[in-house]
Write a protein that binds this DNA or RNA. Sequence first.
DNA 1: GTGAAAGCGCTAACAT
DNA 2: ATGTTAGCGCTTTCAC
Lengths: 339, 339
Amino acid sequence: MREGIPRRPTIIDVAAKAGVSKSMVSLVMRGSSDVREEKRRLVLEAADALGYRPNAVARSLVRRRTNMLGVVLSDLHNPFFTEVIDGIEAEAEDRSYRTIICTASRQSSAERRALDTLLELRADALILASPMIEMDAIARASAEVPVVLVARPSDSEAIDSVANDDPTGAALVVDHLVALGHRRIAHVDGGGGAGAAARSAGYVQAMQRHGLDAHVRVIPGSYTDEGGRQGVAALLASGERPTAIFVANDLAALGAMSELAERGLRVPDDMSLVGYDNTSLAAVRHISLTTVDQPRPQMGRQAVTLVLERLTRDRTTSRHILIPPRLVVRGTTAAPAVR
Amino acid sequence: MREGIPRRPTIIDVAAKAGVSKSMVSLVMRGSSDVREEKRRLVLEAADALGYRPNAVARSLVRRRTNMLGVVLSDLHNPFFTEVIDGIEAEAEDRSYRTIICTASRQSSAERRALDTLLELRADALILASPMIEMDAIARASAEVPVVLVARPSDSEAIDSVANDDPTGAALVVDHLVALGHRRIAHVDGGGGAGAAARSAGYVQAMQRHGLDAHVRVIPGSYTDEGGRQGVAALLASGERPTAIFVANDLAALGAMSELAERGLRVPDDMSLVGYDNTSLAAVRHISLTTVDQPRPQMGRQAVTLVLERLTRDRTTSRHILIPPRLVVRGTTAAPAVR
DNA sequence: GTGAAAGCGCTAACAT
DNA sequence: ATGTTAGCGCTTTCAC
């Protein structure tokens, strides 16, 4: 004779066992100071004996807040995001909020479901580290709870953002490569990824500024390993071979690197390569990728700060934090081979 | 005049607007078929007009189940875990469960908090991809909800597990290296990480089987990049230099690789190197690490299957899935240099 | 088919 | 300092 749903001890069971009211138990569980030491002990003992655990679901219902920050994570496999999460969790912990993560495998449909889940779960605020999702879904969410976008600029009044200045970052890359003597600099873009269009535009503009209009070449890619591989493949399949490739992010640059190696092209001897993000991957000795740094954990912390300002200090005007990017030169860039 | 907590439309608001009872709205929202088409339309329109979103908190409270699978994730930065998550999410989605993740930065205190959070949130079942947490905390959790351990063997009746056979995996590594001609094979272990002790023991036993007792050398490390670096540093600081190193996992092997490079040792020319897990990292062309494969997504799927068996089919006896490991030979192992 | 009513486990006034 | 009471927003009998 089993029940489908086993009952766990409730506040009432504890109250009965301790011989007090349930308000008493509630007070004790929440660490109230104005309760007599003796009662506190009684309650704690009863709770312990029963294996009582407060039901956050019930608490959230009555308090109408969950004390949870919901994070929509576009791509669990991209170190950029996991490093942003580090900052989010650290800051959330400091402010005694819990963080819960829903991931999305880089598909906008999955991101929308993750968003809906978090909204139904009544997360108090949302942090979207999620390039792909459509802006109007985000706008609708922001009508319900504070929302902040990470690594994707926003100009909406309702939605905060913390991002880096992508066009400037792209320009740093082009400037660096031009200074090394490169002229045929191609760009494998990030497809629909957040900031991809801005990086691409920055690249084009910088190329033009250097009078290299004729060498502008943008190849469609994505923010993944595979995107980089295919971008390089497409790049080498036709047209004059460039001497340098600026890939939309580190992960894709890694794919590009593998693809180049498989085709017998050495980096940087035959081809210079630059990524974006400065993830831990780029710093790995055997990869040693020249890239553009975004301060990932700091961006995570700021994201939390922004939504909590709306939540606890009722800020209603938007804040958009734009971080200046920084070039990190490593081993994948060099002067082009003399022809 | 603002309210501290903005009110969102409830089922009652929708009912009022649609001119029906809230039971009606409830039926419609849950897609019941026995409600007249006209009413359904009315309700749906009202809901849409109000921007109504069902409150999962309230639903969970009354249903006494949340339809959520809680995942405690030890280390977001280790691709092994994120690849396990892929499988978890895929299977959960197939069974229409939602997945929520709490991470723990590889500290057992953080893991315990993640566990508590998920339990208070009343996740219907728990998947622990969490090496460090103490067994008795897990045991207590398993009294409340079904729990499955991933990548960490369990022999408890109350706790399921899906793991690979670590001693055998370690033996595969030693056999491979011995076959290449290595004798001085050292092991940088995984510290307190799950399976670390078993891998280490497997290494020792395999070495003994090959009559290499005298060359057994275990250096303390951890399942991180840093663990591998320090392990190599310690290894080279004293004693006779080995010709091969078996590192506890891929992430640590990557750290080991960097450390070796910085000391001017070439892999595999001067030193063979083997990792464990066969994460995507190991497959990266510039890393090309010889390692032991664990079928990560499949393990994730099985973990979900196991807890759902307990949840929906009331299985009460334990199931412990042990997966045979498989050696993946890549570019970091070769015959030792002739001396 | 639809509505009324009784909770789910907790917190937050309000009494005392 | 402690108990009583009225919900939080929903699902679920049970009537009609």
